[in-house]
């Protein structure tokens, strides 16, 4: 049953993303930026997906500390890994855009810097997990780290924001928005596709994590014999 749902969601994600690619290819070029602006249809939804992943990871970590149920730990690591991949996609697409428009691959702007710091924080989460052998300790320490990292993210953002900014102002949900409504529809639809993709990836990763724990407990049982 669970497999079937995953296949359906995966197929749906592919369908939506394929349709969006077709629509995006047919859109006119933006007046000032030309064709490269179309990267926004992946750049922004990837960031939103990463944010959803971070919030889910926080919820799962808190739930683990409350219940000590390992399924929450498995969910936290699965969603963090997937979120990290989407954040990486966000950074890479942004970098490609910056090369064309700004003429540089990277600048120490507030959004770029805070996204990179987030990436490093959550990469630290995965490294911490790798370094701890004992499952209960690994899950507990990782959950504590995840909560602290999530608390840090807004402070990092605002501190760097006071420091400097160069990134274009957001064009969604803000007063200086100038994104046409039909483009916004494409962007949201693309977000839906990426979100579905993220859910499928997380579910697959979750199953790996469950199998891993089963293998571990079998191994322990075999040792005990």
């Amino acid at each position: 049953m669970r497999d079937k749902i995953l296949y359906v969601l995966g197929a749906l994600a592919i369908l939506i993303l394929a349709r969006d690619l077709y629509v995006i290819a047919g859109l006119p070029q933006e007046a000032a930026q030309g064709a490269i602006f179309k990267i926004i249809f992946f750049h922004v939804p990837a960031a939103w997906t990463a944010i959803v992943a971070a919030i889910t990871a926080l919820t799962m970590s808190v739930q683990f500390l409350r219940t000590k149920d390992f399924k929450y730990d498995a969910a936290a690591v699965a969603v963090t890994e997937v979120g990290l991949a989407f954040l990486a996609a966000n950074l890479v697409t942004g970098s490609i855009w910056a090369r064309v428009i700004w003429g540089i691959w990277w600048t120490w702007d507030v959004r770029l810097t805070s996204a990179l710091v987030c990436w490093l924080l959550y990469a630290g989460y995965l490294m911490l997990r790798h370094a701890i052998e004992e499952p209960t300790q690994r899950a507990t320490f990782a959950a504590v780290f995840s909560i602290l990292a999530f608390l840090d993210v807004p402070i990092v953002y605002f501190s760097i924001r006071w420091f400097r900014t160069q990134h274009p102002a957001p064009v969604f949900l803000s007063s200086n928005g100038s994104f046409p409504a039909d483009w916004t529809r494409v962007l949201l639809s693309n977000w839906l596709g990426l979100l579905l993709l993220a859910i499928v990836m997380t579910a697959i990763r979750l199953r790996q994590e469950e199998s891993q724990r089963e293998i571990d407990s079998l191994r322990r049982a075999a040792h005990a014999m």
């Binding site: 710091v117 490093l120 924080l121 630290g124 490294m127 911490l128 370094a131 701890i132 052998e133 780290f145 602290l148 990292a149 840090d152 402070i155 990092v156 605002f158 501190s159 760097i160």
Partner: peptide, 19 residues
């Protein structure tokens, strides 16, 4: 009590300390 303690501590601390 984890492996690579001396390596892990700075790696985790500095990004968190940034603000």
């Amino acid at each position: 009590n984890i492996r690579l303690r001396e390596v892990m501590l700075p790696m985790l601390t500095y990004p968190m300390l940034l603000p």
